[in-house]
Design a protein around this nucleic acid. Sequence first.
DNA 1: CGCATTCTTGATAGTAGTCAAAACCGGTGG
DNA 2: CCACCGGTTTTGACTACTATCAAGAATGCG
Lengths: 211, 211
Amino acid sequence: MTIHPLSADFAAFAFTAADFRGHIPQPASCFSAGAEIYAQGEKADCLYQVEFGAVRVYRLLADGRRQIAAFHMAGEVFGFETDGTHHFFAEAIGATGIRILRLPAAGDVSRALLPLALQSLVRAQEHLLVLGRQHAPERVAAFLLDMAERQGGDNRFDLPMSRMDIADYLGLTIETVSRVFTKLKEKGVIRLASLRCVEIVRWHALREMSE
Amino acid sequence: MTIHPLSADFAAFAFTAADFRGHIPQPASCFSAGAEIYAQGEKADCLYQVEFGAVRVYRLLADGRRQIAAFHMAGEVFGFETDGTHHFFAEAIGATGIRILRLPAAGDVSRALLPLALQSLVRAQEHLLVLGRQHAPERVAAFLLDMAERQGGDNRFDLPMSRMDIADYLGLTIETVSRVFTKLKEKGVIRLASLRCVEIVRWHALREMSE
DNA sequence: CGCATTCTTGATAGTAGTCAAAACCGGTGG
DNA sequence: CCACCGGTTTTGACTACTATCAAGAATGCG
């Protein structure tokens, strides 16, 4: 997995600031937990950058099944679409600051967006492997490693999202996610300081699990 | 699903031809069935456009499990990467013509690539829903509809890939794929003129299945 | 402190995977 | 033209993983 730390994303974007001709980035808007950022079917004419907090991007099936396609953390840019229409929903997970970027659909600035879009593409494609071919313990292990890396690689980090969100991201049920967490605790691979605060004790074991 | 016909992709690309400064697109290379186009870990310094035939882009786990992240058909451009390195393998499925596009990593031409990259992104994200939340019959139904649309929307079309490829794309086994095909035949939803030639009889039933 | 929500645990059921073998197809050569 | 052969596909019997349903425990917020 190629994970760029927050600073790298910011740098990538800052690099393109000169391309804005009079387009001053808006001050960040604040979204409270569960607030909708955009909905499927809406017109897509801008991009979004997370300042703080976290975002879930998802789709629903007719019977209510939900698949979270991506989580976006501080620094990341999301909201890319092909035909000017959003194909997904985006919601703030907790209290979240979002900088809205009004961009010309096709302009000089768009060339700087390619790397950001490609990062989303690679992330999505790697997640296909997880959903298509990995078992529950492998999925959870991959998820924890990904979260740890995206938050600086420390042993301890907070999960901004609920077990339900994790389940819907990993294509599992909350019960299965919970059982895997329990197994990982029993095996001494992780510790939970609180429900949302994970400490990775045995990195090697996690890496082996996720293959 | 937003599927652009072949001509649209070509048009999108042709639009950027002026951006090539002396970079004349190579004549198409020919790959035979199973030939490797690029491998995971290789340097990625060009893009690829399918002229005829079809391509599978996939990744392997240590124990041999394979996930096909995407199929690419005539007209489509693939090979996008983030850090100059291929994260996946690409192979010709049958005899396939590929036009190799040598592109500057960051240049004027890259802004025209954004729509193509975003198409791959949206396709991948929609496939996440299939792998994460749909059952076997829904996956196969979605796959057949996608293939039909990408080949012009006729009732009859050829599958360029084997059952094994379909299984590895849908996150299933060949046995399960085969059983679903049999069920669809029994219910009169599809007919198989030959193993690789599908005729969709009841579109509506397929659409309902795939939700 | 009490309540609502979220999370965990347990029992059972169902979908898809695994293993094994038979049928089928497509190409080759007699 | 037909028989043969190798690989692919289909079918069947059984297993296993995860979902579902149902309580119960813990968390955290007012």
